[in-house]
Design a protein around this nucleic acid. Sequence first.
DNA 1: GATGGTTGGTACGCTTTCGGACCAATGCGG
DNA 2: CCGCATTGGTCCGAAAGCGTACCAACCATC
Lengths: 258, 258
Amino acid sequence: MNYDIAKLTVAVPTPVYPLSSLSSFGNELLRRMSPADLALLEPSLKRVALPLRMPLVTPDVPIEAVYFIEHGIASVVARTPTGQEAEIGFIGYEGMAGYSLVMDDDRSPLACYVQLEGEAMRIDAACFNAALAASPTLRLFLLRFVNYLQVQTGCTALVNARLRLAGRLARWLLMCDDRVVGIRFSITHEFLATMLGVRRPGVTVALQELEGLALIRSRRGEVVILDRPGLVALASGGYGVPEAEYSRLFGELDSAAQ
Amino acid sequence: MNYDIAKLTVAVPTPVYPLSSLSSFGNELLRRMSPADLALLEPSLKRVALPLRMPLVTPDVPIEAVYFIEHGIASVVARTPTGQEAEIGFIGYEGMAGYSLVMDDDRSPLACYVQLEGEAMRIDAACFNAALAASPTLRLFLLRFVNYLQVQTGCTALVNARLRLAGRLARWLLMCDDRVVGIRFSITHEFLATMLGVRRPGVTVALQELEGLALIRSRRGEVVILDRPGLVALASGGYGVPEAEYSRLFGELDSAAQ
DNA sequence: GATGGTTGGTACGCTTTCGGACCAATGCGG
DNA sequence: CCGCATTGGTCCGAAAGCGTACCAACCATC
C-alpha cells in the first residue's frame, strides 16, 4: 500500500468557501468546481473503495455511475476484437471516470478499470445527468477535463508510435508518480506490459535499463522513483504536454493537498 | 485530384427542412444538426478552399475559426518538442476542425492541418462561440463529434502500440477511403511515413506488401483501393470501432451523399 | 518448513524496424 | 527536349522487440 488511508479522515485546512467544510475532497475536480455546482452533486456523492481491477466503465454498456477519483489510478483501455489491449488514458485524483456522460453519451466502447486501488466519490449516472442538465457551468467545467484527456490520449498515441520501450515506460512511471502519494508504488511487470502493449520480459529489461541509469529502483512488485528529471529526459518530449495543459485549464496541481 | 469540384455546385435533392435549400452541405455535422442550430451558424458560414498543408489549428495559439469540412482531409497531429510528429486524429466531411471551442477552450496543444486538399465551411471563432452560448443543443450535438474523435484517437494509440506497419497502413488507407470520393487518392510515401510515425522506406515496403496481397494498387503519388474487406482483415481489429461509434452517435453515413 | 501460486530474470532465434545511403523513375518548368 | 526537384525502390548492418520457454526468487498458506 503506498498511500495513507488515515490521512483521508484527518482535519483539512480552513475552508475557503462556505460549503467547503463538506468539500474536503482529494479529487481536484470536486475541489475546483464552483460551490454552486458542487452543491448540486454533493448530496448524491458517496465515498466508495476502488479495489484493484474494479470495472468503472464497461464497453458498450450504459454507464452506471461517475467516479471522481480521490486516490488510486484508473486506466482507460482500448481493446481489439482479438483481445489485445493498450492503455489510452490515465486518471487519478485529478480526474473522473465515466466522462462520456459529460458529452451527453450514455456509454463508451472504451473500458475503464482500476489499476491502483484507492477510493472515489461515486455518483449515479441519473443524478449526474440531472446535475448536468441543471447547470450549464458544471458541464463546461467538466468539459475541460475531457479536453485534457483528449490531449493526453493524443500524446499516448504519439509516444506509442515514436518512442522506444524505455521512453514509454519512463513516461508511464512519471504519470503514475504524479498521481500517487510518495515516491514508490506497487506494480508488476506483467501489468506494465499489458498497459504499454508489449511483452512482459521486455518490461523487465527496460526496468533494468532505467535502474542502471539510477533513475528508479525496482523491487519485486514495487518501483521507486529516484530521478524525475532523468525520467523526463528519457521520455524525450513524451511527458509534459498534457500536464501543462491541465495546469493551463485548472491551475497548478497542489500535490501536497492530496 | 480525386474528387469532383463541379459536384459542389449542382442541384441537391428536395429539402427535408425549410432551411435545407440553404443547407446543401457536404459536411455531415451541418447536415444532421437541428434546423434551428444550423440557422444560428449559417449566416456566418463561408465556403473556403483547403489547400494542402493549410494550418487549421496552430498549437497553443488561439483558434481563429472552426472548419466544417466539406471534402478533403485534415489531420490532428501531436508533436514532441524535438519535432517528431504523428497523426492522432483524422477528420473529413464527417467532422470539424477546431473542436476545442466546443469544450470551451480557445486553443489546443495539438496541431491540425490539411492533408488532402478540399473545401470547408468556415466560421469565425467569435461567431461560433456566440452560437454555442445561444444554443445548448448545438453544443450537445457537436460534443458527440468530440466524443467520437476521442474514441478514434484512442484506437490510434492502440494500433500504434499493437499493430505492425502493414496493419496500421491498412487502417489509414481505409479511413482515407471512407472520406474520399472514389477509390483512389493522391498520397506520397514520405507523407504517409510522417503520419504513421515511421521511416519512409518502411512505407514503400509495406505498400508493396499490400499490393502483393492484391489489396491495393500503388502508383507514383497515388493509391487505389482494390479490396476493402481484405484491408479490414489485415488491420486486425484496428479498424471499425470508431466507425461504429460514429454510426451509433449520428446514424449511418450516406457515402453517396457526399 | 514444505507447498504452490505469483512474480521476476534470462536465454534463444527470429521478425520487424531503424538509420543511412544511393540510385532510378517520374514529371514539371524552362 | 533538357535539367532538376520530387518521389519511389533497394540495400546494408544494427538495434529493438517478439514468442517461447524455463527456472529462480518470493510470499502466503497450511
